[in-house]
Amino acid sequence: MEDHIIKLIIFAVFSWTSLFLLIRKLLPNYSYEFSNRLVSTTHASLAVTLSLLSVQDWSCPICPYASPSTLKQKQTLAITVGYLIYDSVCSHFDERSTSNLDNIIHHLVSIIGLGAGLAYQKCGAEMAATIFITEISSPFLHLRELLKELGYKDTDLNLAADVLFALIFSVARMVGGPYLAYVTLTADNPLLIKTMALGLQLVSAFWFYKILRMVKHKFTKRATAKKLA
């Protein structure tokens, strides 16, 4: 891995950590998780923007397959790897953390997968597309929880955030995701990158199942409340 990319990853870890500490200082009355979700939302917005800016050919955004990574693609990956390292460490310091096994596996697979792309310096287009697919729904994921802490739990606004998150996640992860995984698996990529692509898709499928259950629970709860009203 190139020295300047390693330095960018270290700088990204420092930057995300500094942003978290700044938010904690500015918003002391809100929870640790609230501050971390604001950092995560900032990263998701930046990552989606950078992944779009790294596209070489809009007629085929993930082309050429298994090609050498461009500087923009490597920088996009490095910033996200830095965030994932920060988030993995940050979550362990939260006493109210709800981190579970599938989230830990997701972080691990993502760090190894993106790290492999940086180490091999190839598959940049596919990696950038992966970041877009995995982060496009993240702002709505965090919005759901932020609204709860702001006092909007079980409101129409919170339900709208739930539905938007479920829809965007489902289209990105279960339509775009399988196609991207297929392209990565069939192209001339290193075995480690192929393994991580498959692993990430399996995690996405498991989360898709959990999201379907969440949406069903939300609408059932809403219907029951209306009947009792």
Rank of each mutant, 00 (worst) to 15 (best):
S97G: 13
L202F: 14
Q73L: 07
H107S: 04
G151H: 08
L192D: 01
Y32Q: 06
S110K: 08
F20R: 08
S31E: 06
R37V: 11
S69W: 00
E126S: 09
L50C: 11
A161M: 01
L202Y: 10
A223F: 04
L192T: 00
Y30L: 08
V81I: 15
A128Y: 05
L191T: 14
A12F: 09
L157H: 07
A12Y: 03
F20V: 06
T98W: 00
R222P: 00
K72T: 14
K153T: 07
I6Q: 10
Y30N: 14
A66N: 03
A128H: 05
R144G: 00
A129D: 05
Q201T: 07
K194L: 05
P28C: 08
T134Y: 04
I6S: 05
K226I: 10
P68N: 03
S67I: 09
L19S: 14
P28D: 02
V215A: 03
H4R: 14
L180T: 01
L26Q: 09
D94R: 11
L26N: 05
F20S: 13
F208H: 08
R24F: 09
F165K: 05
Y65I: 13
F140K: 02
G199K: 13
K227M: 10
V55K: 04
L26V: 15
Q73H: 05
T42G: 10
S67C: 05
L50R: 13
G151Q: 08
